[in-house]
Design a protein around this nucleic acid. Structure first.
Lengths: 232, 232
DNA sequence: ACTGGAAAAGGACATATGTCCTAAATAATT
DNA sequence: AATTATTTAGGACATATGTCCTTTTCCAGT
């Protein structure tokens, strides 16, 4: 992790994402940039949360670890996204672990300054509301979807979302084994079972497996199988 | 549904729950009481949402219905709880169906007045933030828990939560068949499978089944099985 | 108490998924 | 290119869960 105290760059990012108005003039001077390398941990489940982060570049992976050590990936996030919002509002420790997938850049601001200068600022509060409400909505969907459909359907949905997302800098057909393991943890199943289902989809001609990559052969068919698209 | 335009009673409720300060003087006159009978629908998935509700009496059931008609219970809620908050913030239709379980009383206020008089009110916004952040937290937990543990564990957790909640006016040992079906839908499994697991827990001496009721025989054992308590 | 019918529980079988281990494939090294 | 090491896919079996249908239980009405 590298902190960069460059307020001009902060302002540039804020303006690029059109959220200048969210952070008032008293806050902005206290914001700085943080860079993380791929694989680097940004915050760990249970750690004391004292910063609100705005993800402005790169991709992060959010996951939780159970007492038994099982890990479940909750989501991948790309800009614009907020990290530490729930913790800020609830005054709690980090509830999940966040890890940089690619080279990541975030704007960070100490909770302490927010409490002091933004806690009464309707613009900031409304922004947080929208962010958190959206997160809730996504998670709610995700919960229903996961409980109601088998892995096959979830995988179809996942493949569609990662294969056709132009903004995904990781795109390359799809996917090496690390991503497969990730996919399994995201979908909430085992690596073994994921393979089984992939095989089935191959036999059905929906996808094709080729040197560790997966190609979509029948997008329509996949969509039909997936129903609605879960992983946005 | 019966609307009761009794502003004094509204104020009494607000004060009882210590949330007078959340709704400012311009809003309060526009709030009124709504009563619902057991089983009555309060709002339906997909309906236009134009009210924010504060649940002040009774118990409601929140569920979602899939395109195929499967229904999944997301939660049971008791006071103090807010209904329609996500929809208010997101300007969306109702994402779930809410139904009165017992005789229910809610304070309702038209979104239109909120937008006009509360959208700039930090007290109100912070209140919503706390509510929604809490909801997110619960749902996040719920998602992880459901994906990571089998029905047996979830059921143990559920039994514990409904059996030892003093504030639950529905308490009676536990439970007739309607509640069993509900429990199945809440846990995200089939009625059949729930029975199977109940049987197993009986054989293990953790619970006892008696005339449609379920008694906890070994609370410690159940807790150990459940790990953490999911359904608060 | 007896009977018919509704409600609740359970049986049988099929599918979905997990765990553990082995085989196949790929990459690294010589 | 051949050989080894490492990574990825698959086999075998066990468990978890779903579906459909039958049996059992419970209760109203007589």
């Amino acid at each position: 992790m590298k902190e960069i105290r460059d307020n001009e760059q902060v302002k540039a990012y804020l303006s690029a994402f059109r959220i200048e108005s969210v952070f008032n003039d008293q806050i902005v001077p206290h914001m700085s940039l943080y860079q993380f390398d791929p694989g680097e941990s940004i915050c760990g489940q249970g750690d004391v949360a004292q910063h609100l982060f705005v993800l402005v570049k790169g991709k992060v992976k959010i996951y939780t670890t159970s007492p038994e050590g099982k890990t479940l990936i909750l989501s991948f996030k790309m800009p614009l996204e907020i990290i530490g919002d729930i913790e800020y509002v609830r005054d709690s420790d980090f509830i999940n672990t966040v890890e940089a997938v690619s080279s990541v850049c975030m704007i960070g601001v100490d909770d302490h300054w927010l409490k002091k200068y933004a806690d009464n600022d309707p613009g900031f509060l409304r922004f947080l509301l929208e962010i958190i409400a959206r997160k809730f909505y996504i998670k709610s969907n995700s919960l229903s979807f996961n409980l109601m459909y088998p892995v096959e359907v979830r995988l179809a949905s996942y493949i569609l979302s990662v294969s056709f997302d132009a903004s995904d800098d990781q795109f390359k057909g799809w996917l090496n084994s690390a991503s497969l393991t990730d996919a399994a943890n995201l979908i909430g199943t085992s690596y073994r079972h994921l393979n089984r289902v992939i095989r089935k989809l191959c036999l059905e001609g929906l996808i094709e497996r080729k040197k560790g990559r997966i190609l979509v052969r029948d997008r329509k068919g996949l969509s039909a199988l997936a129903g609605r698209n879960l992983y946005e």
